[in-house]
Design a protein around this nucleic acid. Structure first.
Lengths: 251, 251
DNA sequence: CGTTCATTTGAGAAACCTCAAGATTGGTGG
DNA sequence: CCACCAATCTTGAGGTTTCTCAAATGAACG
């Protein structure tokens, strides 16, 4: 039993969800019953919020798919997060009252928004909400760190394979089929997210297909079949040939 | 006025700190008065906590310098965070009850640890503590995203310059002198953090010194003088020559 | 059915890594 | 206090990965 659960057990039933899918459903239900929620349907390209905009609300994706883009003052831009159903958005705005990134829908979906102040107030009555919030922020931090690990320690081909594996896992956790996934991003967007050019993404996908780790749908190169997710992991390991990559061995 | 301030104003005075240095002092004072805190002196190389260890406490650095290392199952390791006085540690353990990374002291310092459960309980009486916690987590997310931006969009030399600039800024925010900084990391550790080899770090520093953007102390290549922090920013811009770097232009 | 965008693939260039040698530093024990 | 040892750092040369530039193909949309 972890810290949050015991902390909240005294006043509220602990989270019972066993799978990620159940956890998401429970979380959305709790929020809906505890807070006034504003729903918004978004379409590909729509902006959920923008960097610099005053922060007042947090958001949860009920459906769809969203990218989070970090912008530098000099114009550099970087996709720093990809989000699916059940993911929270907007944490980066808490610290200084303004969002730090753009959040852009990549697909039709529904976003639930609620006042951060109202959430904090609701947390007093239902501490389990606080648990949910903290777990979501903690997971976000963990995901970001895993991204850094991949960016710094994997060669381009392995990074693409890792990307596909993570995508498949995100679908799997949400109870969706993972043998066939539809990337809702261009090669350029994938490349930006993975720190490589669109050509390198294309070549990596071609090599993965040549090795039969993935397969393209007959028409449309954005539909990718993944016969065995384990093959992706094996491919990643194969990229490194048992040798530590750049800058790996610190001690 | 941001969301947290208004959310907590009704029951507790909002944070008054204007500078980061004051904010840190206020935060440490509040925690000390609200919670039983366990203090621990650490020395270079000491482990604050390890990946996999059961999570029950959060930590704040009162002094010293700590690196956070993310480990992959296959042995890859990545420095994903560098932390100074006032920084919180251990957020990544909240989500699943186990820390996700190693936290290792790079220097002599003092760590304050306190039970996460106790903190949550204290937050009920002093909502300002909740504000502090959320702001710290939010800042951590923002920092991670800035790291990703730098890793993916800056060439090696600029990444090293950016690293020095961030270090100087961290010192500056804590009221320390920034014209001379002592790196408490080897070139290998810096390289790991920045996603490059130790030789590339060394060459980048040499080039920065050649361009008089930095200067080495007479003896000891870990003491670095930064005459003008703006020169580092100018160097970073110069690395890109006004042209967008790899994978930058998504639209 | 043409236009536009996305994707693939190739060839050459650039950035970075690997390997290697030598120099410097910091610590340790005599 | 000095000499030595181990670790760190610097620098060079050559190789590999990835990027850049370019052209052709494929797909989507009105």
């Amino acid at each position: 039993m972890n810290a949050m659960t015991s902390a909240t057990a005294s006043s509220t039933a602990p989270l019972s969800a066993a799978s990620t899918s159940e956890r998401i459903a429970e979380c959305m239900g709790l929020l809906r019953s505890a807070l006034p929620i504003q729903r918004r349907v978004v379409h590909a390209g729509d902006t959920l919020y923008q960097a610099g905009e005053a922060f007042s609300h947090l958001h949860i994706l009920n459906s769809g798919f969203v990218k989070v883009v970090n912008l530098a003052a000099d114009g550099r831009e970087q996709v720093v997060g990809l989000h699916f159903r059940g993911d929270w958005l907007g944490f980066d705005g808490i610290a200084d009252g303004h969002y730090g990134c753009d959040a852009i829908a990549m697909d039709t979906g529904e976003v639930w928004s609620f006042s951060y102040d109202a959430l904090l107030r609701a947390c007093v009555a239902k501490p389990v909400l606080l648990t949910l919030l903290h777990e979501a922020m903690s997971r976000e931090i963990g995901r970001d760190r895993d991204s850094m690990l991949a960016l710094c320690t994997l060669p381009a081909d392995a990074r693409v394979a890792d990307f596909l594996r993570n995508w498949a896992q995100a679908l799997s956790e949400r109870g969706l089929r993972t043998d066939q996934i539809t990337l809702r991003m261009t090669r350029a967007e994938i490349g930006n997210y993975l720190g490589m050019t669109l050509e390198t993404v294309s070549r990596a996908l071609s090599r993965l297909a040549r090795g039969d780790v993935i397969r393209f749908a007959e028409k449309g190169r954005r539909e990718i079949q993944i016969p065995k997710v384990e093959a992706l992991s094996a491919f990643i390991q194969g990229c490194m040939g048992g040798v530590a990559p750049a800058g790996a061995a610190v001690h």
